[in-house]
Design a protein around this nucleic acid. Structure first.
Lengths: 110, 110
DNA sequence: CTAATCTACAACCGTATGGTTGTAGATATA
DNA sequence: TATATCTACAACCATACGGTTGTAGATTAG
């Protein structure tokens, strides 16, 4: 999912899709690249669950899925929460240099 | 920044760095890859502003930067807020099919 | 001083990624 | 029916990415 969000064009597609621009071909008009390229970007977004496609006649409507973004946001929240406080005490930890408890999570190599 | 978050190893490095594991070599012990590879991952995180390095004798201490994550979270918040409501009305928009205001943002092809 | 440790960085390799063009199938329009 | 539009997908290409090994510079330990 972060992979999908990593491309600027795809992030822009998400924004445009949320605004009401809809079919793939209509989205493609906004970018200086081929229709096929945009099509691939949409496919990536779809695989990441950030977007759903829905047939509408001969067009394919692109619609964002807010839940996916919410999920991404939550994982960032987790990181933030995990760090809060700890990082503030980091200077102390470095100064003391005594409690390097490296054991609890070390052995699990992947 | 999303690019940097896109790799699982790098996300794990962020977590470990927040826990107090610190030097690059110490971090490298945790992964089934070479020291140089981990070094590169840390470099990517550093370029993305997610982490800062600080010399400590012959070691280089890796420390996460909470502000960066907060920034990423906020940009996701923006997306979420931009969509909220609009997506719920999407069915109506599709039904009416009259107000395709594609103009305001179209011409700017990068 | 010598040896070990930690880091930096270059060179290389296989694969993934972002882009292209071209062809073909569905659906709407004349 | 014939034609235009929208989509799907394959094949290809250049570059970025994640990994490796190897070499070299600093710093600490014996």
């Amino acid at each position: 999912m972060f992979q999908a969000l990593a491309d600027a064009t795809r992030r822009d597609i998400l924004i445009r899709a949320g605004r009401g621009e809809r079919s793939v071909s209509r989205l493609a008009e906004a970018y200086p690249m081929s229709f096929a390229a945009v099509q691939k970007h949409v496919a990536v977004l779809e695989r990441a669950g950030l977007v759903t496609k829905e047939r509408r006649g001969r067009e394919q409507i692109v619609r964002p899925d807010p839940d996916a973004v919410r999920r991404a946001r939550r994982s960032l929240d987790q990181l933030e929460r995990a760090w809060r406080g700890k990082v503030n005490r980091m200077a102390d930890v470095l100064a003391h240099d005594a409690d390097l408890n490296d054991s609890p999570t070390k052995g699990q190599s992947r």
